Simulated assay, not measured.
Amino acid sequence: MIDMENWGLTPQLVAEAEAAGAYLGRVVSQYRDCCRVVTRKGMMNADVSGKFRFAVKRLSEYPAVGDFVLLDRSDDQSGNGVIQQVLPRRSAVIRKAAGTGQAEQVVAANLDLVFICMSLNDDFNLRRLERYLGMVWDSGATPVVVLTKADLCVDLAERMAQLETVAFGVDVVVTSSFAEEGYQAVRRYLGRGRSIALIGSSGVGKSTLLNRLLGREFMATQEIRQDDKGRHTTTNRQMLSLPDGGVIIDTPGMRELGLEGADLAKTFSDIDVLAKECRFSDCGHGREPGCAVRRAIEQGRLPEERLLSYQKLQKEAKYQGLNAKQIEAEKLAVMFADVGGMKNARRLIQEQAKNRRRF
């Protein structure tokens, strides 16, 4: 029998399954046509029911790794199980699917912690970390920054000082691929029933970290390239049981990180605090008089790159889910904001559209 409580099962989930008269499982890996699910009786393959598929409106509503699902059976001895329902997620890391479309992709669901892995070599990137932090805070899980490849870092103190300007209220752990004791600090976050995910760019050392936590060579690791960039190892998301308790989800390196949602208030809390001191409540932190944010930049208390990153992510989050025409309308509204306000600009756009339809 599988210890499902170690896989995150709670009395509330059990009660929901009993009320529905169904079996309960958790998705451990996801493929194009089916899922691999763990139940009390073991691992099994499961397909989405036709009724479920018909009712789905968005890609993100399909089962994802980490989801708890209701099934028509507890094993697949007589064929694949059928997923009847995905139970409500208490947290979900979501990004915009790679490409130009607006579809959202669930990276992992029902997480307690997310280890944001970033190497201390030339892949160290504060702007990318801001995007990851915004995505994780928005998910409902708690981020932990795991710095890898400390053995390749020339000036660790400098890196840590830079990190302090970005990772407010976030635990930071430093690890080295050559030192076993370097991973002990990570182990204190593990525990029975706790669900954790690893995210980060390709080649930052997620597979090495996973092998250390599993106590065995589960994932093949690849040598770093001559240009100091890592090689891509993981190709699909999967959930694994940890010997120290709990489960961990390994994810492929994200070549693109389109934000479906981001909690910028937590990620950029320093800018939010400064903005409260601006003369105008709707200050855009550009040329407005009395801007406390611009003053902090001029005084060297805030890097200008951080404000630019904040503004870029604001625009990205604002335009998420809009089609090309809607994005154009929003941009026009901003352009006309100084001569009548955004509401008037939107009203003008709507009136123009009505007039075009008349003719």
Rank of each mutant, 00 (worst) to 15 (best):
Q320E: 08
C291F: 00
D123P: 11
L147I: 03
Q30T: 13
D171T: 13
G140S: 02
A197G: 11
L113F: 06
P143R: 05
A20W: 02
N344V: 00
D244Q: 15
R40Y: 00
H232G: 12
L147V: 02
S78P: 00
C35R: 14
L322Y: 10
G42I: 03
P11I: 04
P252H: 11
G215T: 04
V154H: 11
A20I: 02
W137I: 04
K206R: 11
F52N: 06
D250L: 10
A109R: 06
S119K: 04
V146Q: 07
K312R: 08
M239Y: 02
S241P: 13
G203D: 00
L240N: 12
Q311R: 14
V204S: 12
K41G: 06
A55L: 08
C283M: 05
R346S: 04
R58Y: 02
D171H: 13
E256K: 15
D250Y: 11
F336W: 12
V107H: 05
D67M: 04
F359E: 15
D270L: 00
E104Q: 11
G79I: 03
D112P: 11
R194M: 02
S119Y: 01
M43V: 05
G42M: 05
G286E: 11
A275T: 01
L242G: 10
R95H: 03
R90H: 11
R32C: 07
R159D: 00
V14T: 12
M239G: 06
Q184T: 09
A275R: 09
A15R: 14
Q84K: 15
K343L: 00
R295Q: 15
V166A: 09
A324L: 10
R231K: 13
H285F: 03
G200N: 07
L302D: 03
P252L: 08
E180Q: 14
K331W: 01
R356Y: 05
Q299W: 00
V293Y: 13
S29M: 06
L70I: 06
E61G: 07
L322H: 10
K96H: 03
G258C: 03
A220M: 09
E298P: 14
V107P: 11
S309M: 13
F52I: 03
P303V: 01
R40E: 14
Y23P: 10
A98R: 15
D228T: 07
G286F: 00
L113M: 01
M335H: 14
V173T: 04
D76K: 12
A17F: 05
S207E: 08
C283H: 07
V65A: 07
M254S: 14
V86A: 07
W137T: 04
F336I: 01
E260S: 14
Q226M: 12
E104N: 12
W7V: 10
A20D: 04
G340A: 06
G286T: 11
L240G: 09
V107F: 02
T10D: 08
R159I: 01
G21S: 09
D338W: 12
G300Q: 05
D76W: 06
G99H: 05
E305L: 08
I83Y: 06
E304F: 09
Y183N: 13
R225P: 10
K51S: 12
R346G: 00
V146K: 08
L87W: 02
T221Q: 08
E5Y: 10
N344D: 06
L259A: 09
D138T: 01
E298D: 15
Q226Y: 13
H285Y: 03
C35S: 13
I196S: 13
A161G: 01
D76H: 07
V38E: 12
M160V: 04
L198M: 12
R301G: 04
Q320L: 02
